[in-house]
Design a protein around this nucleic acid. Structure first.
Length: 608
RNA sequence: UGGCCCGUCGUCUAAUGGCAGGACACCGGUCUUUGGCACCGGCGGUGAUGGUUCGAAUCCAUCCGGGCCAACCA
């Protein structure tokens, strides 16, 4: 899995430096045990991928192990479906927890005993104040908290009450167990944090065994301790929790040395959001088709989109680990994807928005099979397929211009262009409908240029992709763009609903695309490069032999589109209206018009 | 507002008192039967002000800016 050799270089980030120093110093006997502790209440996303790469990577670097532990202490939000998807996703990412699969819910009995120990030491008490009261008595960041009426209960009374809480003698919310620490602490988390609450709810694993459930701060440090974790890595927002993490372990009889918590900055990516709460909203409100919608930043979504696990790992390597708040450029992810796919994705030809091209001097009914390599020279991989060449072909609508802009290197009236792996053709004539829309391009081909070479040495500047009109396969193609139209959709906080920033153009469905027939013989999970357009993969959910569906993983870099865009700056949004014709809304199934008429002038939206 | 954390090219990230480096992006070029890939070159940064030091991104102080914390969520 070390596809990047320098990954093992010591001290590549501050956490790995700490771990390396600890190993060097012989702490924990030189052992490294980390853990990845997801709560099974949602799907894993790219932010988790960063945490997974860090925790698994840092341990593996020293021959250590990483535990997968479900932090399942909240029966109301967690379930089995999430447990399964999380395991599948971690495995798919390429990491192995071996035998070390754990559940915090398996520790409930031991946790209960630890709580009793705390009570016996006079360090925890049962508080019978209401939730509102406790909140009010906690004070604010500028005012200290005050004790409720129950803070000085005797150990015996606390023990009895806590036992009866477990027995089910009380209603939800009647009592809680609190640590007795410091109500005046400047760290709000130290103001007698709640350790246990009563919740008469069935847990997806323990069923009705318990009606009291431990909270995060109590559960997490002790779970780490129980499992012999050495380095407990989490994100920055748990910084304030560390003091409590240490306090609990310091005041209980636990194995030494204790695990230490280290925090790093969570990942943010431009034009997306990574909070599980809001991702869940997108799913529940059907703004997307589900957790695995290819537009989602979830591991499942990215997998369906065609992003290889190796690209995600490479991306995590590239972004590093630090404590600085960050928002990573979307282009960095795209780079990682292209960089992984370029050497492994076989090239095939698919025409996204077809325009008929008739080769006038090619015999009607004649079929010529042309050999086309799957990889360009520089990739250096063997393999080729035959592509059928016929009198009637289909080319990309964008590849013909009657009135070409400066620098246009494709087909124009009277001009020559090379059909990839085929012949050089010259445009002789154009057929238009009553609206002046081009419906057919007529060409003549030069038989001497078979395969694309020019024996006479003349330069043909443009090469375009094509398919046979009669032998190509119809396919649906789904083009994805960023889910949000602003770099930080959650910026407004709760004051603003992030859904207003959803990009209405995040999905474009093309229904009359045509692909070369060779792909019929390939495994369904093949990731292709459609020449000149991008990387595509069969949609794992909707694609069938009789109804092909391809997802665009990422576009190819397109310096022509970039140049065009730059040229148009200042020319105002003159094409806004035309673009509007092909947009589909998220989760809706609007289709691009299938006739030539409506789709003329439509440009492939650039991914940027 | 009290506490804690964090400020380095546009973005991400190195430099642990000793030449501010890399990646992505961007710009220019070479190559090219993908306007892809590759290669070459360029642009561009230590939030501010003081102080300590032969020497400060690094240590200290103040200020400015950003983030987290007042769930019986994690």
């Amino acid at each position: 899995m070390t596809d990047h050799p320098d990954r093992t270089a010591a001290g590549r980030n501050f956490i790995r430096a700490i771990i390396a120093a600890d190993v060097e110093a012989g702490k924990h006997g030189g052992a490294v045990v980390t853990r990845f502790p997801p709560e099974p209440n949602g799907f894993l996303h790219i932010g988790h991928a960063k945490a997974i790469c860090l925790s698994f990577g840092a341990a593996a670097e020293h021959g250590g192990v990483t535990h997968l532990r479900f932090d399942d202490t909240n029966p109301e939000t967690e379930n089995e479906l999430y447990v399964r998807s999380i395991q599948e996703d971690v495995r798919w990412l390429g990491f192995d927890w071996g035998d070390h699969l754990y559940f915090a819910s398996d520790y409930f009995e031991r946790l209960y005993e630890y709580a009793v120990e705390l009570i016996e030491a006079g360090l925890a008490y049962v508080d019978s104040a209401s939730e509102e009261e406790i909140r009010e008595y906690r004070g604010t960041v500028t005012e200290p908290g005050r004790p409720t009426a129950y803070r000085e209960r005797s150990v015996a009374e606390n023990l009895d009450l806590f036992r009866r809480m477990r027995e089910g003698d009380f209603e939800d919310g009647a009592h809680v167990l609190r640590a007795k620490i410091d109500l005046a602490s400047s760290n709000m988390l130290m103001r007698d944090p709640v350790l246990y609450r009563i919740r008469h709810a069935d847990h997806y694993r323990t069923g009705g065994d318990w009606c009291i459930y431990p909270l995060y701060d109590f559960t997490h440090c002790l779970s780490d301790s129980i499992e012999g974790i050495t380095h407990s890595l989490c994100t920055l927002e748990f910084d304030n929790n560390r003091e409590l993490y240490d306090w609990i372990l310091d005041h209980l009889e636990v194995p030494q040395p204790q695990p230490r918590q280290y925090e790093f900055a969570r990942l943010n990516v431009e034009y997306t959001l990574l909070s599980k709460r809001n991702l869940l909203r997108l799913v529940e409100e059907e703004r997307v088709e589900g957790w695995d919608d290819p537009r989602m930043p979830t591991v499942a979504g990215m997998r369906r989109r065609g992003i290889p696990a190796s690209a995600l790992r490479a991306f995590c390597d590239m972004i590093g680990v630090a404590k600085t708040e960050n928002r990573v450029d979307f282009a960095k992810l795209e780079y990682a994807i292209r960089d992984e796919l370029n050497p492994i994705a076989p090239r095939v030809m698919c025409v996204l928005r077809p325009l008929k091209l008739v080769v006038d001097n090619f015999p009607e009914g004649k079929l010529e099979e042309l050999e086309a390599p799957y990889f360009p020279e520089d990739v250096g991989k063997e393999g080729s397929r035959l592509v059928p060449f016929t009198r009637e072909l289909l080319i990309e609508r964008d590849d013909f211009e009657e009135d070409p802009p400066k620098g246009f290197r494709r087909l124009v009236p009277g001009g020559e262009v090379r059909l990839r792996y085929g012949y050089v053709v010259r445009c002789a004539d154009v057929v238009k409908d009553e609206n002046g829309v081009v419906t057919e391009v007529h060409c003549t081909y030069d038989p001497e240029t078979k395969g694309g070479s020019t024996p006479d040495g003349r330069k043909v500047k443009g090469t375009i992709h094509w398919v046979s009109a009669s032998h190509s396969l119809p396919t649906e193609v789904r083009l994805y763009d960023r889910l949000f139209s602003v770099p930080d959709p959650e910026k407004g906080g709760d004051a603003e609903d992030f859904t207003v920033h959803l990009n209405p153009d995040s999905l474009t469905v093309l229904t009359d695309s045509r692909i070369e027939p060779s792909i019929k013989a390939d495994p369904a999970d093949t990731t292709y490069q459609f020449e000149r357009t991008g990387y595509f993969v069969h949609d794992g959910v909707d694609s069938r032999p009789d109804h092909l569906v391809f997802n665009r993983t990422v576009t190819l870099r397109d310096s022509w589109a970039k140049a065009r865009k730059a040229a148009e700056v200042g020319a105002a949004g003159r094409e806004a209206a035309e673009n509007g014709a092909e947009e589909a809304r998220p989760s809706k199934t609007a289709r691009e018009p299938t006739g030539g008429k409506g789709s003329v002038g439509v440009r492939v939206r650039d991914h940027r």
